[in-house]
């Protein structure tokens, strides 16, 4: 059984699960639940996964298998802002790799890693389908199109400044 503190902490999640749960196919809503939980808590911690396992009665090992299969699910805390560089074909042909290189140099992290101050997580993303703007990078939901490696510094500075103000 979950302890009482966890129950409170995950009330919202429990409520969401009861809304989408299909008793005939208990596992079928798992991916929706995981999306919701990640949006709510930032990443899928061991506690979150175990809680979902208890409520849905799907074994935690099974859920863990699903979480690690899909690249959008994260099991580690993420930085405040997500920087993604599109690695689709059109972006690659138009120099996406150089944008990524410039970001790696600037932030001193590799894709999948988070800066020490927990401000930025860098990732490569699959094609986001805005190939007319290639090459593309995004910071959270903001899209930067036709990016030149020289512009990267300015973009990062802009977000750093924003974060300092808050």
């Amino acid at each position: 059984m979950a302890c009482s503190c966890c129950e409170n902490q995950f009330d919202d999640l429990t409520q969401y699960i009861s809304g989408v749960f299909d008793p005939e196919h208990p596992q079928s809503s798992l991916i929706s639940i995981l999306h919701h939980a990640q949006e709510r808590y930032g990443y899928l911690s061991k506690d979150v996964i175990e809680h979902i396992a208890q409520v849905t009665e799907v074994p935690a090992a099974e859920i863990y298998g699903v979480v690690t299969f899909y690249s959008l699910f994260k099991t580690k805390p993420q930085g405040k802002h997500r920087i993604s560089v599109c690695m689709g074909t059109a972006c690659y042909i138009r120099g996406g790799a150089k944008i990524l290189e410039a970001l790696e140099d600037m932030l001193d992290i590799k894709p999948g890693e988070t800066t020490e101050d927990m401000l930025f997580t860098l990732s490569e993303t699959r094609c986001i389908g805005a190939c007319g703007l290639a090459p593309i990078m995004t910071v959270d939901d903001k899209v930067y199109g036709r990016v030149e490696p020289e512009q990267v510094k300015g973009i990062i500075a802009e977000w750093r400044e924003k974060a300092e103000k808050v």
Binding site: M87, G88, T89, A90, R126, C127, G129, A130, C131
Partner: peptide, 12 residues
């Protein structure tokens, strides 16, 4: 599930 990089027909 349009996954091919560089394809955006289904999205559009």
């Amino acid at each position: 599930d349009e996954g091919d990089p560089g394809a955006f027909m289904d999205r559009s």
